[in-house]
Amino acid sequence: IKYDLKLCCLLTHMFQLNLPVCLKPPDIPHASVSEESRKRGYEQGDLLYYTCDTGYVSGPTITYICSSKSWKPVRAGELKPCELPDDTPNGYYQIIQGDDFVFGTTIKYFCNSGYQMVSKVQTRTCLLNKWTNHVPICEPVSCSPPTVQEGLIVRGLPDNDGPILSDRFITFSCADRSKYLSGSSELICGQDGEWSGTFPSCEDITCQAQKPLPPLYVTGLPPANEKMKYGHKLRFLCDSRYTLFGVTEVECLETGQWSAAFPTCREPVGCGMPPPLEFGDVQSSLQSSYDHGERVEYSCQSYYTLDGQTHKTCSNGQWTGEMRCIRPCTVTQDDMRRKNIELRYKSDPKIYSRHRDFVTFSCTRGRHDGRLAMRQQCIDGEMLLPSCQ
């Protein structure tokens, strides 16, 4: 029994001597175990050396020792710091990779509102002795000048072809009244250097019309129903058996619309009794109704003069034709006695003179005062009388 116990203790001691004390090496950021110190297992007292990754320094070599079944550090590595990066006017920077201004840290530059980055490279990285790249440059945001089409008026551009900065408004209009502005009449240069919309253009103002169906006919319509430009005119007429209702002519306006609705053709309608004529009469017997196209003749009373047409015509329910009866002039013996005058060629107690007739007077006593001529004309029922003293 004593022999077996002694053998067991000897085997246990031998097994403990061969079993590794420290197993997995510690994980050190930005460093790895050197080749010369790497092995499968580590016993107490073994040293472990680390090599820093590129860009990192540790001063003395990072060293760990296997002690009491664990690794204990002898020296830890530190990153090499960089000088503070330069600022850029009208902009700022932010760290986009890393936590401090040390080797490997990357920063990115941004521009303030109203400014834009003109440098192609916007980042810088801290190396062993300096920052990479030049400091990016921020310039005021500007928009490209508009492409000016012939006939397009642009207002609001800077003088002397200066830069178009953000928040500047420009307006557009067309020089030719026969064209309209297709697009926005106002654009603004945005904070991003882009215009608020696309540039407008000047297009021909056109109106459309299709060939009407009979009995309505139109002249001035182009072939193949092409669009007609501003100022173009169309004229309408109806078949002889129909009457035109509406305008006879329309024009293409600057709104792209026609000046009036297109007319229509309808069968004509008759008329009622013709209207009366003051100081005149209808020459024929009156009827209660008349057909389209019928005429009625008028005449004036004695000594009245007919001025205008001699007849009215029934035209699609309306009487057309204008005339009037003009009054004659009347001169009595009392009128002439007060003026000391008399008719030179008559001795009637009362005379009637038609419109535009002339009458000659002479003095009954005294002499002509010369203020009015002794020969006067009747005008629309009025005649001036000379006088003698």
Rank of each mutant, 00 (worst) to 15 (best):
F172L: 04
D86F: 10
V282K: 05
C111T: 04
D86S: 13
C378M: 07
Y50E: 03
V148L: 13
P268K: 08
Q122A: 12
R338E: 15
L221P: 03
V57T: 11
L286Y: 10
T106H: 03
V121H: 04
L48Y: 03
T88A: 14
R338S: 13
P146G: 11
S113W: 03
S302M: 05
K120S: 15
I107S: 04
R266M: 13
V21G: 04
G197C: 06
D86T: 11
G321W: 04
S67T: 08
G231T: 06
V74Q: 09
C329M: 04
I65R: 11
Y109L: 06
E382Q: 12
T106N: 00
F103A: 00
I137S: 12
S387M: 14
P73N: 08
L10N: 02
Y242W: 05
I379N: 12
E139F: 06
R38L: 13
R177M: 12
V331W: 01
C378D: 05
D100H: 10
E139V: 14
T171L: 14
D307E: 15
R338N: 14
I326S: 04
S284Y: 08
T248E: 11
T54I: 07
K69A: 12
Y115Q: 02
R327L: 01
S315M: 11
M117G: 03
I65T: 12
L385M: 09
I137M: 14
I341S: 02
I170N: 02
W319S: 10
C329W: 03
R338A: 15
L234A: 07
S362C: 09
E294W: 04
L244R: 15
C189N: 11
G220F: 07
P276G: 06
S362M: 13
K312M: 14
Q318C: 00
Y42N: 00
V121F: 06
E83W: 00
K72E: 13
L372V: 12
D357F: 05
D46L: 06
K233L: 02
P146A: 10
C9L: 13
L306S: 06
F172C: 03
E254L: 10
K339Q: 15
L181N: 05
Y42T: 01
